[in-house]
Design a protein around this nucleic acid. Structure first.
Lengths: 243, 243
DNA sequence: GAATATATTCAACAACCGTTGAAACCGTCA
DNA sequence: TGACGGTTTCAACGGTTGTTGAATATATTC
């Protein structure tokens, strides 16, 4: 009677929806949104293509679902750590090192010891953060409240420092962190094996002192009388403190 | 006799090969390698699709051609500036600020005042540098000799500093620079207009002090007896300077 | 001006893309 | 058992992808 025999379903324990998210997480992190097809993803997940439309609605929605899955738990943890650091230092503001550490320590910890999914996730965040197309919308939507809070605490820790300097310092910090999470392996080649970009413990030890010193330098530069528009080096010195 | 009438060619002065490179530069920078089709590019260039295969061989080769076009002139200029900075400081090594400045000043200058092509190009380099797929190969091939030279000079400027620290400091520096060139506009939103990510003069003034202070902090941390594996914070302090 | 080399156009190719609808499978509760 | 709702499979859709070959147009050379 011409009945078709269907493939038995894979049924590898984990529900299909999460298998899709896992596979998409890894592939999107490796090759970006456009570099991966739904068939790449569903094949890696051992699942039919149509399930993406069924469970998520479309490719775009799958992409944001992957991005959102781990964002909230992460933000909560980082915020709690920041407030704890703040409480411990009372009545003084916490050190810049402690603030910076609260910012990226939960990320480095999970990337190093949270399993391969987390590692892919941070590479994906690095991709999104650097993307002119996805970056502004997705990062802003999910991470801005947290970043605002960090900026506020940084301002308290650097009294008298113009907020503009804090924002630029944060920009440099997040850039350094982003490239680290991209884990392109370039540092390994460059250093001839002296540094391994997967060695997140090395990052953990160094990033906080690095950016803390950077913040202080920015603050000093601003307070020590850098004019609004220094132009060339000579002109800057000349126009300062006109008698 | 059924002769087909052909479209007259566009002939907008500039040769087709360079028009393709220009359009590809802008579009690849915006949406990455996979986010742009050859038809997007050739349509923006006002040129037939088949010309890509004819002039470059294929999409991949076009991508690398775009990347290579401005790399050499850039490297030469940066290297000359570095050697000039070095010469001027003799017999002492140049300051960290001067070295860092020589590293990114030619980039910022051309991005700000070199025309839209240059601006797109640096966004493209940011994309490549953060890409796990293209980054290691393309960056290494075109920029490693230059970076090696900069690392050497940095080591001279920080005598006694373990080279490992220099490499990590360079990693953070290039990460901050990369995110800046991506120009996602996120900093603008975050700061409520207080900072503009397109304001490369602000970057120029701040990046050198920031990273120079960071390098010094890394060096001090290494020399001040940071153990090889500090583990947790408490353990690190306890094991230092055992009597 | 004819011959030649280079450049560009056009049409088509097979492969792949995201998405869809209908059918089949599955466990659950009545 | 039978009906039912949530999942999954299958096949197909129209559109787009990178690439190719032949025909045509333009420039160069003798």
């Amino acid at each position: 009677m011409l009945q078709r025999t269907r493939m038995k379903r894979k049924s590898t324990g984990r529900p299909a929806k999460e298998r899709i998210l896992d596979a998409a997480e890894q592939l999107f992190a490796q090759r970006g949104f456009y570099g991966v097809s739904l068939r790449d993803i569903t094949q890696a997940a051992g699942v039919d293509v149509a399930l993406v439309s069924y469970h998520f609605g479309g490719k775009r929605e799958l992409f944001t679902a992957v991005f959102e899955r781990r964002a909230e738990v992460l933000n909560r943890e980082r915020l709690e750590l920041l407030e704890e650091v703040r409480r411990r230092a009372l009545p003084a503001p916490p050190s810049l090192e402690a603030i910076a550490n609260a910012f990226f320590e939960p990320l480095l910890e999970r990337s190093a010891r949270g399993g391969p999914g987390w590692k892919s996730y941070f590479a994906l965040v690095a991709y999104v953060n650097n993307s002119p197309e996805f970056g502004p919308m997705m990062m802003t939507r999910h991470f801005d409240p947290l970043v605002d809070r960090f900026i506020t605490v940084l301002c308290e820790a650097l009294p008298g420092c113009p907020p503009r300097e804090i924002y630029w310092g944060y920009q440099f910090l997040t850039g350094a962190l982003t490239l680290t999470f991209a884990e392109t392996g370039r540092l390994d080649k460059l250093s001839g094996g002296l540094c391994r970009s997967t060695d997140l413990d090395s990052v953990r030890e160094r990033l906080a002192p690095y950016v803390a010193a950077g913040f202080r330098a920015l603050c000093e530069r601003a307070l020590a009388g850098a004019p609004d528009k220094p132009g060339r080096v000579g002109a800057a010195r000349r126009s300062r403190r006109r008698p």
